[in-house]
């Protein structure tokens, strides 16, 4: 069972929730926020294995190339340019779609692979921790995300997704059997939660909401969830202690009060997401 953890807005505490929840529920932690994978700071898994993520890029064989420019014309991403002397590739714009090879009449195009990121896998106590890391300067995260998700361990996997509702999140969601939406009680939080809800509904999977930085005086999220008939899985209070624990890289379930809150969430999870 794969449960994706999303947040419309950045900085809502998605990673905090994912890591603590994984440990509390005895599930695996999968970090798909490959542009900023921060979960390992808290879990610090041991026995790390690393694997490269590679993508195809076209290589022009100058002996065969007639400089007809068809490859540059067909490329929808402006990754190829024909100058008077040669064909120039902008590898970071290339989507590895192979359209250039299909269109080339002179068999002048072949493919090589280049690294755009890595995948790391290790253990924290009994749970498996896996993450993708996109190399700095690389624009396309989706191939890394797909590589992380194509081969997941057995059991419950908590998938920490990128913030927002971009195609990175869409790709992560297509591997999920359920979703948890993390939000905070503010106008921004509600606005961006609504965007995330609209996204998840496209996937027809069960989902619930966790309110982080909970403030008992502000019930706008509860009202919204009631109206939309969305289950609230739990609330996490905001306190200076949490901020300090977080900034020192520790798990917040080390604090008794928060351990209780996460226990409660795990209980509620089992109602929303059927698993054994």
């Amino acid at each position: 069972m794969n449960i994706a953890i999303l947040s419309g807005k950045g900085g809502t505490g998605k990673t905090t929730i994912s890591t603590n929840l994984a440990v509390m529920a005895g599930g695996n932690y999968i970090d798909c926020d490959v542009e900023e994978p921060n979960g390992f700071i808290f879990l610090n898994p041991s026995d790390l294995k690393k694997e490269e993520v590679k993508v195809d890029y076209p290589v022009i064989n100058d002996n065969n190339c007639t400089l007809c420019g068809d490859c540059a014309k067909v490329c929808q991403f402006n990754a190829l340019v024909r100058t008077k002397k040669n064909i120039i590739l902008f590898d970071k714009l290339c989507h590895s779609c192979h359209a250039c090879k299909i269109v080339c009449k002179y068999e002048a195009i072949s493919f090589k692979k280049r690294e755009i990121g890595i995948i790391e896998e290790g253990k924290y106590n009994n749970i498996i921790c896996k993450r993708g890391i996109l190399n700095i300067g690389e624009p396309m995260a989706v191939p890394v995300i797909k590589d992380v998700l194509k081969d997941l361990p057995n059991g419950i996997n908590f998938i920490d997704c990128a913030p927002g509702t971009s195609c990175n999140v869409v790709n992560s969601l297509s591997y999920a059997d359920g979703a948890i939406l993390v939000t905070e009680p503010s106008a921004f939080g509600l606005h961006d939660l609504n965007m995330a809800v609209n996204l998840v509904r496209n996937f027809h999977i069960p989902f619930g909401v966790i309110i982080n930085k909970y403030n008992p005086k502000d019930n706008r999220i509860q009202k919204y969830c009631q109206k939309e008939n969305i289950k609230i899985l739990g609330t996490i209070n905001y306190s200076r202690k949490v901020a300090e624990t977080y900034s020192s890289g520790k798990m917040i379930i080390e604090i008794e009060e928060y351990k209780k809150a996460f226990k409660e969430i795990v209980k509620n999870l089992k109602e929303v997401f059927p698993w054994n």
Binding site: G10, E35, E36, F77, F90, K92, L93, H95, L134, I136, G137, E138, P139, M140, A141, V142, A162, S166, C167, N168
Partner: peptide, 14 residues
């Protein structure tokens, strides 16, 4: 400019 890339922002490569 970091080859059009970013950790945040230019996510889809479009």
């Amino acid at each position: 400019h970091a080859g059009m890339g970013a950790r945040r922002g230019f996510r889809g490569g479009r």
